[in-house]
Nucleic acid binder design. Structure first.
Lengths: 137, 137
DNA sequence: CCTTGACCTTCCCATCATGGGAAGCCTTAT
DNA sequence: ATAAGGCTTCCCATGATGGGAAGGTCAAGG
């Protein structure tokens, strides 16, 4: 299987497969006599694992850790759970931040007439935020 | 006011102030004879506006648009509202994605014993995801 | 007056994960 | 044999931010 087929089969672009190889996330693929990379079903399986982890929002570092645990037959499931739990916490942190943003914005939008007049509470809010620090000029 | 004072007063780092100037988001600052950038209260006000917009998750492009409207006395508040609404939609899209991730992960973590045994439903899920495309090898 | 430390300047590099594109070689089908 | 399309490597770009080096400047204190 060439890199293009592996890309189709795994959902990871050829570009990213080469990149993952360059960073050591995956082992260097075998090569044909004409220097084409060669992949097997097992490699596609690994790529799909990576794809899924990335889709779930794991960073490449986290993905590498999960991949290592996946390939370690003697792993403890607690190790995996720890990574997943930490990741959930990160995601929820991010969600909370985004929610705070939308709540604020929705409130402002709600107060904005949205017509041809220039008066706009959204801009007023953006402009009038309190100084974060004291000026020492 | 030097750039350091402006940074303190606005909450935008000196590095970022120079960057904003380089990208045209803000006008080039005046200079002293010794080539130091000089800022006034109005500039700090603008920087705070930018800071607040960025904090609310607006991209630099969106921020530039808002800044333009802010400085345009004849703007229509509908224009601002349109940008804000679009941004809210983006944020909610992102929140939905993150929530889907956490829901999946929480489910997996819930099913994981988290002990010293190697059996781990999290890894099994990552490994067994369906092929996104047909293999044409 | 001179030194010291804190500030400023520009320029380059790194992040993180991904895509775009060029130049050149290889393979496959017509 | 030729054309199309896939593969290779290499460089560059993103978005917003920080780090750091090399060198100029300013203010305070000995």
């Amino acid at each position: 299987m060439n890199i293009g087929q592996a890309a189709n089969a795994s959902g990871v672009s050829a570009k990213m497969i080469r990149y993952y190889e360059s960073t050591g996330l995956i082992a260097p693929a075998g090569r044909t006599q004409s220097n084409y990379r060669v992949y097997g079903a097992e490699d596609v399986h690994t790529l799909r694992f990576i794809k899924r982890a990335r889709t779930l929002g794991f960073s490449m570092d986290e993905t590498a850790a999960l991949l290592g645990l996946w390939q370690d037959k003697s792993r403890a499931s607690a190790d995996v759970k720890r990574i997943a739990d930490a990741h959930i916490a990160e995601l929820e942190q991010k969600i909370a931040e985004l929610r705070a943003m939308t709540d604020t914005l929705k409130h402002l939008v709600h107060c904005c007439a949205g017509d041809n007049r220039p008066d706009c509470p959204i801009l007023e809010d953006l402009a009038q935020s309190d100084a974060p620090e004291r000026m020492n000029a």
